[in-house]
Design a binder for these strands. Structure first.
Length: 247
DNA sequence: AAGCGACACAACCGCTGCTTT
DNA sequence: GAAAGCAGCGGTTGTGTCGCT
């Protein structure tokens, strides 16, 4: 809805983007970098809202994007990540280099939802995944979550002190700096470099190889099985997603 | 060839959380 | 500490395309 105040407002355009608009946006980003979306329309001459520009760039124009069909490997990862995270599309997309949250979401809703209907039914979209969750730890502070592997049957808070087959996940959230997110995953098969950890500095950058993520996923999936039969299907508990900081 | 429905994906909307003032 | 503005997320809608009748 347009305001009719004293000041004239530029009527923002909606709908599909034209090639010349794409060009303007691309030139703007090349000259000014990403970000400052709120001022794009003023500075670029585009009659589009900041949100629209950001979305267009992120989902379509960014050079980091990988176009084309999902590979079997990517599809498998989406399914397994969704199994663990629910509809946390940006998190899932962050583990798939060159793929966007919108792309993953669309792919899920069009392709995969048909293939796994019983599974989809169990994940009600409006329940836990809809709301963005408040981080239980301050940004930029690494947190350590120690959780139990499949052997343990007791429902703990997921970060308990049980030391039977413990695994560690260090999760850092760097939202303040351009939404860069960094995670250290449990040590895999030793091919991830220095300390045996997989480090993702920025989900949009192609730093991950899929096999490494697979290793990490496998270490989580034992837990996921447990969550599913405990009546909380296919969601990692809050404590694991945003674990409390151990002293 | 035309009409229609299903499908795929781009784009929008409403909301939340973070940062800045 | 409060308010405003911005960025980002996930759900939903809109639109173009394709295949079938």
């Amino acid at each position: 809805m347009d305001k009719e105040g004293g000041q004239q407002e530029i009527k923002l355009k909606k709908g599909p983007w034209k090639p010349e608009e794409d060009l303007l946006l691309t030139q703007y980003v090349e000259n000014h970098g990403e970000g400052k979306w709120a001022t794009v329309s003023k500075r670029s001459g585009l009659k589009r809202g900041g949100k629209s520009c950001r979305l267009r760039w992120k989902n379509y124009l960014s050079p980091n994007l990988k176009r084309g069909e999902m590979s079997q490997e990517e599809e498998d990862l989406i399914i397994r990540m969704h199994n663990l995270l629910g509809n946390r599309w940006s998190l899932i997309a962050g583990r798939l280099p060159g793929r966007t949250d919108n792309e993953v979401k669309n792919y899920w809703n069009t392709h995969l939802i048909k293939r796994y209907p019983p599974y989809i039914k169990r994940v009600s979209s409006r329940s836990s995944s809809n709301k963005r969750r408040k981080l239980s730890h301050p940004p930029n502070s690494p947190t350590i979550c120690v959780f139990q592997s499949s052997q343990s049957s007791k429902k703990s808070n997921g970060c308990g002190g049980d030391n039977n087959q413990k695994q560690e996940a260090v999760i850092t959230d760097n939202r303040s700096s351009h939404h860069a997110e960094s995670q250290q995953f449990p040590a895999g098969n030793g091919n991830e470099g220095g300390k045996g950890d997989i480090v993702v500095e920025n989900p949009s950058l192609p730093q991950l190889d899929l096999s490494s993520i697979n290793v990490w996923l496998e270490s989580f999936e034992y837990g996921a099985e447990r969550w599913s039969w405990m009546g909380s299907p296919f969601y990692l508990p809050e404590e694991i997603m945003y674990p409390t900081v151990l002293p």
